[in-house]
């Protein structure tokens, strides 16, 4: 992407002197009419179905509207009510719990697993890579069905196994902390394989000479991991950190489908997230203004978290 000529792709035309000096912006636009024509179907759809809803959503978040009659101006009322609501505070607390537990586990587990799977000494690593990835392609609804089959209190297979080995039954789907652990397991099950692949991609970019040099200095496997792999993977680790954080701030399908009878809230609201509350506010209670406002609160959180972590990337790279 260097010169004008290369981009426009028509050197003959472009190097010719511009038509007079009246080459206005309109002239430029007319000259590129075919480009506009080709991208216009995309941008028409994009504008109607992505741009317009965004603007509409901002407006709606300041209205009080239940889907019937005319929306009424409500100012910051929706935001005020949401930020004071105990359910919202509780859901934020749940999200923070999920983040604190899952973020280090996902990063640590996927980095270690990728390191192992990258080692040529391990046989069958290509097969393992595929096995770990398969959950990623499974529908969340199906995952929820299987997890209910495995974790339900009376006939769940896991409780059957736990009782057989003498540990006893756990109320996976009916007690607060076990319910959170169930959601955590479900997230881990789905997300690990994908992130292992990202980490593997990063590992393959580390020059082999660095490991050779470390060997010459007498470093063992563990030392190489901490003094070569981890520093070299800083960027990839932060990338996985950012996408995982965004994913967890958007956590919805796992609690919603595992605890569908309570609209995702789970026992004692232990698994409620901002998203499960938004979905039920909009599509069960039809409180559209409030749901739109909650959507923006989630968006602000996501953007804020992304900016913080991008800041970290820049500091780390400086």
């Amino acid at each position: 992407m260097t010169t004008q000529n290369q981009i426009s792709g028509t050197p003959g035309l472009m190097s010719a002197p511009q038509v007079g000096r009246r080459s206005s912006i309109w002239h430029q636009i007319w000259k590129h009419r075919i480009e506009y024509l080709l991208i216009s179907p995309f941008f028409i759809i994009f504008g109607i179905f992505h741009g317009y809803p965004l603007a509409f959503s901002i407006w709606l978040s300041f209205q009080r509207w239940q889907g019937i009659g005319e929306p009424r101006w409500f100012g910051l009322g929706n935001y005020e009510r949401l930020l004071k609501s105990e359910r919202i505070i509780g859901a934020l607390g749940n999200t923070i719990i999920f983040l604190i537990i899952l973020l280090p586990i996902i990063i640590g587990l996927t980095l270690v697993l990728a390191t192992i799977l990258n080692s040529p000494q391990i046989k069958g690593r290509k097969v393992l890579r595929v096995l770990y990835f398969l959950p990623y392609i499974t529908s969340a609804v199906i995952v929820a069905i299987i997890f209910q089959l495995l974790l339900n209190n009376n006939s769940g297979w896991i409780n059957g196994i736990l009782e057989a080995v003498g540990i006893g039954r756990v109320g996976w789907l009916i007690e607060a902390w076990p319910a959170r652990i169930s959601v955590i397991l479900m997230v881990l099950w789905g997300a690990t394989g994908y992130n292992v692949l990202i980490m593997l991609g990063g590992l393959q970019g580390i020059p082999a000479e660095l490991y050779d040099a470390a060997s010459v200095d007498g470093a063992d496997t563990i030392q190489k991991f901490f003094f070569v792999t981890v520093p070299m993977m800083r960027g990839v680790i932060l990338f996985v950190g950012i996408t995982t954080t965004i994913g967890l701030l958007n956590l919805f399908t796992q609690p919603w489908l595992l605890f569908s009878s309570s609209s995702g809230s789970g026992p004692d609201d232990a698994t409620a997230t901002l998203n499960t509350i938004q979905y039920s506010t909009a599509f069960q209670a039809s409180r559209y203004g409030e749901a739109a406002a909650l959507g923006f609160i989630i968006a602000i959180l996501v953007i804020f978290a992304t900016l913080i972590q991008l800041r970290l990337v820049r500091t780390a790279e400086a």
Partner: peptide, 17 residues
């Protein structure tokens, strides 16, 4: 920019539309 925005910010108007 729309890639960075989570879907929650537009899902309500999407449905209404």
């Amino acid at each position: 920019v729309t890639m960075m925005l989570p879907y929650q910010s537009t899902i309500v108007p999407f449905f209404l539309l």
